[in-house]
Amino acid sequence: MKRDEWKTLGWATALLAVAALLPLTGDGYLISLGVSIAMYTVLATSWALFSGPTHYISLATAAFFGIGTYVMGSGIEVLPYWVLLPIAGLIGGVLAALVGLATLRLSGVYFVIFTLGLAEMTRQGVTWYQNQTGHKGTYVLTDLTDNDIYWQLLGLAALVYLVGWGIGRSRLGFALRIIGDDEDVARHVGINTALSKVALFVVSGAVAAIVGAIIAPRYVYIEPSTAFTPMLSFQVVIMALLGGTGRLWGPLVGVIPFTLLWEAISSSFPNQTTLLLGLSFLAIVYLLPGGFVGLYDRLKGRAAKRSAMA
């Protein structure tokens, strides 16, 4: 590792340590906000690992998340909690692989459309299955507190950052950047484009499912309409794009302000969240293409130019 990489690692560890101290405040509202931020950070960062370089917009987060909660919900009576987390990841990953194999060979529009309906379709399927078997929802009763959930999400975030950093240094990461630039060229230099895209989609699907499983105890009672909320997919997309997908830390920069804004709007104007979502999309396209990361790079570029001229 190079020296500045050690430095980044040092800073990241320090930040993580500070973040881990949050529950010591004992403030329930702060901790619950912390859970939200940690959850969206994991979801948005893993979303960006796939969608950042490939430019495929996935709206499947809610589907994977919901499946994760259901794995926890239906398995908690039978299997220990710690076994269910990897199982959720495995199932999420397998589903992502299937979806990816069917759609990632084709253009981006097909993929968006397919993922758009995936959560709703899974919800219909689960509801139907539950009606057939005659029960409506499931209880997830554990002795996990918000603090435990928060720490687990932080740990998962650290893991996602490490994985993302590793991919960025690997052949796979390099291949994805080439695919994002020009898929035809990628094929002609010998890259298995479909497999590379599916591999990253599997990572983001597995992570979203694990997040769902970790969050499940918070709901206590799980039913299809709470586990599969299509809105979640859109929130994740906006946060990631607002921060910018060009860097690993980009989504985090989008998650924090957007989560705070979302909390504020949904507590004072609960009917206006849809409008907020719409306006955010438009703002990103017209005012902030590339997100905060893009803005930062442009400012840095301008500053560099100015100092070069001086």
Binding site: A175, R177, D181, R187, H188, G190
Partner: peptide, 30 residues
């Protein structure tokens, strides 16, 4: 390509987000 056929394109196709060295590496890594 892996079996050993490389090509250039009629209209030049470089990878816009990468520098010259990375563009060249792209041909040698895979």
């Amino acid at each position: 390509a892996r079996k050993g056929v490389s090509r250039t394109f009629q209209l030049v196709r470089l990878l816009p987000s990468m520098n010259v060295l990375e563009n060249v590496m792209a041909g040698g890594v895979f």
